[in-house]
Write a protein that binds this DNA or RNA. Structure first.
Lengths: 270, 270
DNA sequence: CGGTGCGTTGACACTCCTCAACCAGGGTGG
DNA sequence: CCACCCTGGTTGAGGAGTGTCAACGCACCG
């Protein structure tokens, strides 16, 4: 969602459906505006482990990472933690904190960071420019989409697949930004943090990584990921959604047959 | 995120931080505008099992459910499915499909639906009105937030807790809309679908439900949920995030100590 | 009636977690 | 300069939580 709003901001009501090409160009334009705005700011350094936001507040700012990794996490009282999102250099951080009052999850610096921060007013100025607003909403939509896929993977894929998914995803994102050379990239997360992200134990992450290394698919050593067989890695990750119809037969014990729901419908449809 | 944009639409640039009270009022106003817009539309009926959107397209519409339940799902080629989001009467459906071109996940009618549909142009007209735009972004932010919590739960909570989480969440949402009377409400989901949502097997969902019934916490029978001990149910669900500082001691093998990351920082911070 | 969708239950297998020990590297203080 | 500690990683043994397979019952529907 959230693309439409920006389109509307122009004032004109119509523009019923914008051809994607033109839209992309708009986004690109917005990106440049944002880059220009951030360009004026001198980066600030933040040490590793710092909480940028938290339940204690401090969330009227929006950051852009110019260097370093960060993550958004949910903590429970029993000490467990789930890492919901991972931010790479170039990402904007804290957009979601700018909503709903501010009681969002923690955002934590995984490595030392170089960030540029804008306050509510600067954000306001950006959002007042339709292309920039479109670009920001676009970015945020992409982030949200990634959480969707994470949830789906956590629900239905096993440890190997989830790990492959993460490694491929990070690879692709870093590639887009020109932060990868060759087939390897740095991964500053600890195995504990990887586990928190993928819903696994540190121990199990370790074992699965070993397994992937032994299969010569990908190796993670000393915080450097080296992809040995991108095809097989992608195949493992295969977040492939069904083209639903390509599927002649559902798996045994088929799903989604014509449901027998007369009773249910009556139950709900008031 | 996404609250700010709307604020900005007013034209004025400043309004640095809006008191929450005033903001809520704005949202309420926007809600009324949206309700009015939908009020004119005659509901259409859609049979259970229908796909509202899918990889085959059909996503220039945004629906509002006036009756029935729907869900957003991700399918894999091996026949597995993950249900990422559940929509209840009153929810707007397909907002996220209005972004990113449109290749979003499938949206499926769980029961027969009564929906009101608006097309791109009507959506445009709504988004042109700042309060309505604010309300829509607000709604969407809430949906996203729910996916975040789902991902976190899938990563770190066990079957009992996830089930409790879901039952409480649905209960609260239905209460808000006045769709609950007493301590029970209808739940049209199949155990298979519950499993797809929570990352469990139909069989395991069944067992856990039995366990919860035997503990007299909550019972699900014939698609009716009856809450027997709301306190204990909430406690199980306890999505309680740490106030981080309230926590004198982290669990054994403590997490998040001052990290030893000189090397890592050098690795990344170009 | 038979067929089908959905729920229920049991036996068993496997993934993943827990506990625990140990190693390696990098600070830090004597 | 060298013990020492702390963090992060590696590995093994055993166990808990879930998944798989399979059978059966119960409603609903044609």
């Amino acid at each position: 969602m959230i693309q439409k709003p920006a389109l509307r901001l122009e004032g004109a009501v119509a523009t019923p459906s914008v051809p994607p090409a033109k839209f992309d160009e708009r986004i690109g334009h917005g990106q440049r505006i944002i880059d220009a705005a951030f360009g004026k700011l001198s980066p600030r350094r933040i040490p590793a482990g710092t909480r940028l936001f938290g339940s204690d507040g401090g969330g009227d700012l929006v950051y852009r990472l110019s260097g370093g990794w960060a993550c958004r996490a949910v903590d429970w009282l029993d000490g467990r933690r789930a890492i919901v999102e991972i931010y790479l250099p170039g990402d904007m951080v804290g957009l979601e904190a700018a909503v709903l009052g501010r009681p969002v999850d923690e955002i934590i610096a995984v490595t030392a960071l170089a960030v540029q921060a804008i306050d509510a007013q600067m954000l306001a100025e950006l959002m007042a420019q339709p292309p920039a607003a479109a670009a920001i909403l676009w970015l945020r939509a992409g982030q949200q989409r990634r959480v969707d896929r994470l949830a789906a993977a956590l629900a239905r894929r096993d440890a190997h697949e989830r790990l492959a998914l993460m490694l491929v995803d990070l690879y692709d994102r870093l590639c887009e930004r020109g932060l990868v050379t060759g087939s390897s990239y740095p991964l500053p997360l600890t195995q504990q943090q990887i586990g928190d992200h993928l819903g696994l134990t540190l121990v199990h992450v370790n074992r699965v990584l070993r397994s992937l290394r032994e299969k010569e698919i990908v190796s993670v050593d000393r915080h450097v990921v080296t992809i040995r067989d991108l095809d097989r890695l992608r195949q493992l990750a295969a977040s492939a959604r069904t083209a639903r119809g390509f599927l002649t037969e559902r798996s045994p014990g088929s799903r989604e047959p014509r449901p027998n729901r007369a009773g249910l419908d009556a139950l709900i449809l008031s």
